[in-house]
C-alpha cells in the first residue's frame, strides 16, 4: 500500500513537472495547450472514495493554477472532472463489473477502452475549463473549437505517456 502510494506521488511529481516546465511553454498555433496533467486524475484506482477524488482534483488543479496565474480555473475544472469520473467509469464498465483493485489503464482494460474513457473525460474537462477561463458564453463557438483542438492534443499526449508507463502489468 505504501509502495503504491509512493509510486503515485512520484508519478504525480513527474507529470506535473512535464506539464509546467515543458507543455505550458508550448504555443502551438496560438490556442492549443495540451493539459497532460489530467492523466494523474484519470489513472487513480477505480474504487477510490469520492471525497478523495474531489480533493485530488482540486489540489492538482491548484498546483497548475499557481504556475499559470489562473487561480481557481484549473482547480474547479479538476473538481468537475473528479466528479464526473465515477459516472464515466460506470458508463464504460465491463459486463461483469470492475474487479477489486483495478486501475483505469490500457494494461487493465485494453487500448480501445482506455481511448474512449480518456476522450470522454478530457473533452468534458477541457470544455468546462475553457468556459470558466473565458467566464462568459460570448465566444461559445470559439470556446468549443478551442476545446476540440486542445482535446485532440491532450488525448494524444496521454496516449503517448501511457506507452511509456504501460509496459508493466497489473500494479497490484
Amino acid at each position: 500500500m505504501i509502495n503504491t502510494l509512493g509510486k503515485y506521488i512520484f508519478h504525480f511529481i513527474v507529470i506535473i513537472l512535464i506539464q509546467v516546465l515543458i507543455l505550458n511553454n508550448l504555443n502551438l498555433s496560438g490556442y492549443i495547450n495540451p493539459f497532460l496533467y489530467v492523466i494523474v486524475l484519470l489513472t487513480l484506482p477505480v474504487e477510490m472514495p469520492g471525497w478523495l477524488l474531489l480533493l485530488a482534483g482540486m489540489i492538482t488543479g491548484l498546483i497548475i493554477d499557481a504556475f499559470l496565474n489562473t487561480i481557481g480555473v484549473h482547480a474547479s475544472a479538476g473538481v468537475f472532472l473528479a466528479y464526473l469520473r465515477p459516472y464515466f467509469l460506470r458508463y464504460l464498465a465491463p459486463r461483469e463489473g470492475y474487479e477489486p483493485g483495478s486501475l483505469p489503464t490500457p494494461s487493465h482494460f485494453g487500448f480501445v477502452w482506455f481511448f474512449k474513457y480518456v476522450l470522454l473525460a478530457v473533452f468534458a474537462h477541457h470544455l468546462f475549463l475553457f468556459i470558466i477561463e473565458v467566464f462568459t458564453f460570448e465566444g461559445i463557438l470559439r470556446t468549443i473549437w478551442k476545446t476540440i483542438v486542445s482535446t485532440i492534443f491532450t488525448v494524444g499526449f496521454i496516449m503517448i505517456a501511457q506507452l511509456f508507463s504501460g509496459s508493466k502489468k497489473k500494479a497490484f
Partner: peptide, 9 residues
C-alpha cells in the same frame, strides 16, 4: 468543492 474554487476564482 466547486463553491470553494469559484470563491478563489
Amino acid at each position: 468543492f466547486e463553491t470553494f474554487c469559484f470563491y478563489l476564482l
